[in-house]
Write a protein that binds this DNA or RNA. Sequence first.
DNA 1: CTGAAAGCGCTTACAG
DNA 2: CTGAAAGCGCTTACAG
Lengths: 362, 362
Amino acid sequence: MNAQQLKDIAPVADQTLDKKRRGRAADIDRRRYTINDVARMAGVSKKTVSRVINESPFVKEETRKAVLEIIRETGYAPDPQARGLAFRRSFLVGLIYDNPNPQHTVSHQQGILDALQGSGFELVVRPIDRTSPKRLDEMRAFIERQKLFGVVLPSPVSEDEALVALLKELDCRYVRIASVPMDEAAQMVVSHDGRGAADAARHLAERGHKRIALISGPNSFRSSVERRKGFEAGLAEKGLSLDPALVKPGGYTYESGIAAARALFARKDRPTAVFCLNDEMAAGVYTAAREAGLRIPEDVSVVGVSVTTIAARLWPPMTTVRLPLRDMGRMAGEMLVPNPLREKTPDAHEVQPELIVRASTG
Amino acid sequence: MNAQQLKDIAPVADQTLDKKRRGRAADIDRRRYTINDVARMAGVSKKTVSRVINESPFVKEETRKAVLEIIRETGYAPDPQARGLAFRRSFLVGLIYDNPNPQHTVSHQQGILDALQGSGFELVVRPIDRTSPKRLDEMRAFIERQKLFGVVLPSPVSEDEALVALLKELDCRYVRIASVPMDEAAQMVVSHDGRGAADAARHLAERGHKRIALISGPNSFRSSVERRKGFEAGLAEKGLSLDPALVKPGGYTYESGIAAARALFARKDRPTAVFCLNDEMAAGVYTAAREAGLRIPEDVSVVGVSVTTIAARLWPPMTTVRLPLRDMGRMAGEMLVPNPLREKTPDAHEVQPELIVRASTG
DNA sequence: CTGAAAGCGCTTACAG
DNA sequence: CTGAAAGCGCTTACAG
């Protein structure tokens, strides 16, 4: 934060706000209880209250109960800022993301919020440009300044090893969400995208398809690499393989799906099925098929990988590999935030993709 | 926050974390500069540094420059938690939402983040159940505990007068995003949904439609009321009116759109055009039309109001009223956070919906 | 098992 | 225009 930016904040906080507050007598009555009030009311020192709050074992049961009773009566809740200042750690969890599809991020976000619900932690969202060389400096400033309790890294940010190294250096907890394990189990939520893609491959093979095309995502996305690998493995099981001429690069966007599908449909030996590494591109295949006068599924079958809700909205409804994005976010949140109320976190933090067969594969 | 919840937080922060930190010698070298360091290096008191940070006019220009120079050299940035504790106000902006469509929220969120970029403020996201009687207590606890700098309220949360009253009581800044003005201009971003709906009505009238149906949103959403009113006003201009038999209640969801459209298409005198108060429901109309063997736009025209990207993905691409959700979020963020770098905020914080004519209206 | 002192990194209130 | 003292609401480090 530079001086200019500091200026931006000050005037309001310094002048408007506090003058306003000072002028309100209600503030005094409404003052929230502090640790001092609780200590006084319970007849103990504030350190003892602090011990009760922090679950220290070194408090006599009787004392503990008395303090807890006062806390209940007063509705006292410790100030997270004061606690954070003393702890040198805030009670904020960060979501650091950079995904071409906002729906992908928002699903994770919902899951994280599910996990944080009632935990006393709040979620701070923070977009990042993974291609920017300045991203590391920005992240360092962000994490140091906010003293984040921990962060969740959805793909493809989860694949940024330089960022992960920085988090370790800053002693900041993190959980990576990715298609394959790429860190210790305690820091990973794994979605096994490849398995879902393999299911899709078997499904198409079983429907008798031989000439199968694939529209990939960006190579810089591990999900794209894994989905493709899984798809090829699934085909191989059925004695099939991917014709390199029928593999088109995409960018995980609707437009890139249209462009890739146009190229495929312009071929004399056009494919009878197209597997798209996400659903936005698959929606583009629908559009290109319509332009080319091809019927789905009669002339061409289409399968996608769902990161949005579009599959069921298209006509005919599209067969897709569903990724439980919200569940993944929830797991990540649960791993990050301590919560004895929950049963022990499972050993394996992973989810399984699910093939949902709809009308687009006849 | 009750005692049980407090427990949840403590163990890690108290034990794991600090033991870890204590063991790392690097912490000492890496310690960030504090206001005391800057004061010492600049040969002034920390209060003077504080004045510079807070843009106080009572600092000699020479002193100010010297302090600023040290700040630049050291890369010093004040600790938001410490500042927050002293200010009794954090540097966090809250996004409090409850919308059936996550895409709607995420678009606002992107806009707010655009505005907060580089401001030193961070965005905390917080879902709320607007129908829950406990929501006010939860919000009070949330806002008091976090001492939020301000909050953004998208619709329909923006229409919750009890919540707004609470915010005023807590002296918490807010900006309401809504379809019509419902507060002082400084607290409003207005989207004039009705105007967009009127455009849609004129458009359909000009194409010669007479039997026009409408699928509404929940009556508890002001946006639904306003869009309908605007649509009726647009029709009236053209000498048309809405046949009550052709008005079906919807819930802003895909499924509710299907159900409403089935009822409409089952009529002998089925409508030649359907206006849906959002695009998710309009996608449902597409599905119902296909089930009924009706062609769009030959047999029936469809118009929606866009809160997602689906309109352009459907076939045929759908005519919609576009709401600039991201812009609305950005305006709200800019209104909330002081930033002298920006030119003065405009007098009117409003946006105009835009009718985007695509193939679904022939 | 409990507490008084010092400190986290800032700001306010008061002097000068 | 500048600073020393006290305070924000918590915790750590040290005694007992």
